[in-house]
């Protein structure tokens, strides 16, 4: 039954997405069945609970992955700036490993291979959350590092000259300035992280994409549902982008 549904869905996607390209270059002559397509958006409304459920899961995964990413990323960023090789080298290895491999592979690997190596079996949701958290940590780590490095050396001098220790200087003088410069790249990374949660569908996590695919299997309405999916992501992400732009502008005025 499931296979039939898959085949059908693939066929429908094929017709919907690929066939139009055959007629590209002469839009007027597009085959009549595309012009005749009737949208049934009421189906989205009917199944709105599914979208809400998916959105909550997506938000949860994003929240925890961000938390892991920020905490670990800060540590990684600081470690990578360290004079001590034993701190610097592992951080650099971790960051470059996660930056140079596909996220999908990381997630699948953590879900399937980690239990074999460690005997530690995590639920699909937890492993995707952790996987995305580690992935985010690698990128956030680089953002932290670049942000801290961008602060003029004179700020360190001034902080040290009034007797601050490294920790005090970092916490009171360097990070507050660096964080402001980190906001734009951080928001980029965060928005990208929200979208990366869709990769959770690869290990059947019930986030937005997976819920949508399930719904398509039941309703055979991929166009409406994917449209709604796009809207759902925009609704999740745009406010964050907007807020960050406001914040940036306010800090620019203040400083």
């Amino acid at each position: 039954m499931l296979e039939v549904a898959w085949t059908l869905r693939c066929l429908m996607l094929h017709t919907a997405f690929c066939v139009p390209y055959l007629g590209r270059g002469d839009i007027e002559k597009a085959p009549p069945q595309f012009m005749d397509y009737t949208w049934h958006f009421q189906i989205v409304w009917e199944y709105r609970a599914v979208f809400v459920r998916g959105a909550i899961m997506t938000a949860q995964i994003t929240f925890w992955a961000t938390l892991i990413g920020l905490t670990l990323g800060l540590a990684l960023g600081l470690m990578r700036r360290s004079q001590i090789v034993l701190l610097r080298a592992p951080a650099a290895t971790f960051i470059e490993l996660f930056r140079s491999t596909p996220v999908l592979v990381q997630l699948v690997w953590i879900y399937y291979s980690l239990p074999i190596l460690t005997g530690l079996q995590m639920s699909n949701t937890v492993s995707v959350t952790i996987g995305l958290g580690l992935h985010a940590a690698a990128y956030f780590g680089e953002i932290f590092r670049a942000g801290v490095n961008s602060i003029a050396k004179g700020q360190w001098d001034a902080a040290r000259a009034i007797g601050m220790t490294y920790t005090q200087a970092m916490r009171r003088i360097i990070l507050p300035q660096a964080v402001r410069r980190m906001i734009p790249p951080f928001i980029n990374e965060f928005a990208s992280l929200i979208k990366l949660t869709t990769l959770g569908s690869a290990v059947a996590v019930n986030e937005l994409l997976h819920e949508s695919n399930n719904l398509i299997n039941n309703t055979y309405r991929p166009l409406e549902i994917y449209t709604a999916l796009a809207v759902a992501f925009a609704v999740l992400i745009y406010p964050i982008i907007y807020a960050s732009q406001r914040l940036e502008r306010r800090w620019q005025l203040r400083q």
Binding site: A152, G154, Q155, D157, A158, A159, A161, G163, I173
Partner: peptide, 18 residues
């Protein structure tokens, strides 16, 4: 750090905390 608190320093480029 403690001994530095006994000396005040003023820099060419001011280095106030912005």
């Amino acid at each position: 750090a403690a001994i530095r608190t006994r000396m005040g320093m003023v820099f060419q480029s001011f280095n106030l905390f912005p």
